[in-house]
């Protein structure tokens, strides 16, 4: 057994233990803390699976932004009390649920052990078609070229989620600023980092976006970093979020998907297919759309974490 295999087993065992801890935790707060650790270790799992793009996304969104959102929610629920009007299931029911879930796991595990060998793969097709897009990162090629419709719909999902969350705004708070007022941090690591990190974070995000064409990285990772850099001063009480009624904020959320749709219709006009790219102009078009999309996704991600407007 090599060191790599040992690392696989250790990472897998730790993830398994954390997942069990989340489900069996007595306190919601404990479960959330374990879940954040779970997200970080999942990042390692993705590195071991040679999926660096996914690892970056998992670390930024799965552990970072999710952790922020869930810890804040757990704290609020500790104050208001959780809306539970349901009794926990009886012991016999828990046993039955456990048996059913173990059966699902066993069936899925058997399916994984029975996967065909050699495994079917679309990698050769992607590699063969990638030069047409002038991109070096095959995952970006799939996201922006061959499966661009998925990415477009995903950008639309983020905008719809913002609308959905804003729809939960209480009447008297409509159009106001989202997010609870944070106490101003005057000393300690948060006060320092909230001032120090954003300039560096913005540069790192621009880099991650730019290298995404040829190396692991891209708009989702860059947008998650940007969103975190926006949320950091808010958490430290140094900056207030803009009011949800601001026209520029709403435009910022919508412009990314709209630019993508426009590029799609451009392809329909020039090449005869929605989201087709003109030969030679593919990389320029993709990069332009990605830059606009990064801004929109960053704003949407931050607004999703902030939640609906709050009555003050």
């Amino acid at each position: 057994m090599t060191a790599g295999h040992l690392a696989d087993l250790l990472i897998a065992a730790a993830i398994l233990a954390l997942a069990l801890g989340v489900v069996l935790a007595r306190q919601v707060f404990t479960a959330v803390a374990l879940f954040v650790a779970f997200g970080l270790l999942m990042g390692f799992a993705w590195v071991r699976l040679e999926a660096l793009d996914v690892a970056l996304t998992e670390a930024a969104i799965g552990a970072g932004l999710s952790g922020l959102l869930l810890l804040g929610a757990a704290r609020r629920l500790a104050r208001t009390g959780a809306p539970v009007d349901e009794k926990p299931p009886r012991r016999a029911q828990v046993v039955a649920i456990g048996i059913a879930c173990a059966t699902v796991t066993a069936a899925l595990g058997a399916a994984i052990l029975a996967l065909p060998d050699p495994a079917p793969s679309l990698a050769p097709m992607v590699v063969a078609s990638l030069p047409a897009l002038d991109l070096g990162n095959p995952v970006t090629g799939v996201l922006m070229g061959f499966r661009a419709l998925d990415t477009l719909l995903e950008a639309a999902v983020l905008a719809l989620a913002v609308i959905g969350i804003w729809a939960l705004t209480p009447n008297r708070a409509w159009g106001g600023a989202p997010g609870w007022t944070q106490p101003r941090a005057t000393e300690g690591p948060l006060a320092l980092l909230a001032r120090l990190l954003p300039p560096f974070g913005i540069v790192v995000a621009a880099h991650v976006l730019w290298v995404g064409a040829d190396a692991p990285g891209g708009k989702f990772q860059a947008a998650a970093i940007l969103a975190a850099m926006w949320l950091l001063p808010w958490m430290a009480g140094l900056a207030a979020p803009p009011p949800t009624g601001a026209a520029w904020l709403r435009a910022a959320v919508a412009v990314g998907p709209l630019a993508f749709i426009l590029a799609g219709f451009g392809g329909l006009l020039l090449e005869g297919a929605f989201l087709a790219y003109a030969p030679g102009a593919a990389k320029a078009t993709i990069l332009a759309v990605e830059v606009v999309l990064t801004g929109s996704i960053a704003v949407a991600l931050a607004l999703l974490v902030l939640g609906p407007a709050v009555a003050r």
């Binding site: 699976l49 040679e50 999926a51 793009d53 996914v54 996304t57 998992e58 969104i61 799965g62 793969s121 679309l122 990698a123 992607v126 590699v127 095959p138 995952v139 090629g141 799939v142 996201l143 061959f146 499966r147 998925d150 990415t151 995903e154 999902v157 983020l158 989702f220 996704i297």
Partner: peptide
């Protein structure tokens, strides 16, 4: 490639 990029891209979308 060390892994098929198509499922990877789908997972990336899925996480978001």
């Amino acid at each position: 490639l060390a892994a098929d990029p198509v499922p990877q891209a789908i997972v990336l979308t899925g996480i978001v």
